[in-house]
Computed example of a mutant assay.
Amino acid sequence: MKNTILIVEDELSLSGYLTKELQFEDFNVLVANDGLAAMETYEAHQNELLLILLDWMLPKLDGMEVLRRIRKHDQVPVIIMTARDYVGDKVAGLDNGADDYITKPFEIEELLARIRVIQRRLENQVEPNQVYQLDEVILDTKSHRVTNAGAEVQLTHREYDLLQFFLAHPDEVFTRDDLLDQVWGADFLGQQNVVDVYVGYLRSKIETPNAGPLIKTVRGVGYKLREATNG
Score class of each variant (00 low, 15 high):
Lys2His: 13
Ile5Met: 08
Ile7Val: 10
Asp10Gln: 10
Glu11Leu: 09
Ser15His: 03
Gly16Asp: 02
Leu18Tyr: 01
Glu21Ser: 14
Leu22His: 03
Glu25Val: 04
Asn28Asp: 12
Leu30Asp: 07
Leu30Phe: 05
Asn33Tyr: 03
Asp34Gly: 09
Glu40Thr: 08
Glu40Tyr: 02
Glu40Ala: 10
Thr41Cys: 05
Glu48Val: 11
Leu50Asp: 00
Leu51His: 03
Leu53Arg: 11
Leu54Phe: 06
Asp55Met: 09
Asp55His: 11
Met57Glu: 07
Met57Asp: 04
Leu58His: 04
Leu61Asn: 01
Leu61Pro: 03
Met64Cys: 02
Glu65Trp: 06
Val66Trp: 09
Arg69Glu: 09
Arg71Tyr: 02
Gln75Cys: 13
Val76Ser: 03
Val76Gly: 03
Pro77Tyr: 06
Gly93Glu: 08
Asn96Pro: 02
Gly97Lys: 07
Ala98Arg: 13
Asp99Leu: 14
Asp100Ala: 06
Asp100Ile: 05
Thr103Met: 04
Glu107Thr: 05
Arg114Lys: 13
Arg116Ser: 11
Val117Arg: 11
Arg121Gln: 15
Leu122His: 06
Asn124Met: 10
Val126Tyr: 11
Asn129Pro: 07
Asn129Met: 07
Gln130Thr: 10
Val131Gln: 15
Val137Asp: 01
Leu139Pro: 02
Ala151Tyr: 12
Glu152Ser: 10
Glu159Cys: 06
Leu162Thr: 08
Phe166Val: 06
Leu167Arg: 15
Ala168Val: 04
His169Ile: 00
His169Phe: 01
Glu172Lys: 13
Val173Asp: 02
Asp181Cys: 14
Val183Asp: 09
Leu189Cys: 00
Asn193Cys: 11
Val195Lys: 08
Val199Arg: 05
Tyr201Ile: 05
Leu202Ser: 07
Asn210Ile: 10
Ala211His: 06
Gly212Ile: 01
Gly212Phe: 03
Ile215Tyr: 06
Thr217Trp: 02
Val221Thr: 15
Lys224Tyr: 12
Thr229Lys: 15
Gly231Pro: 03
Gly231Val: 05
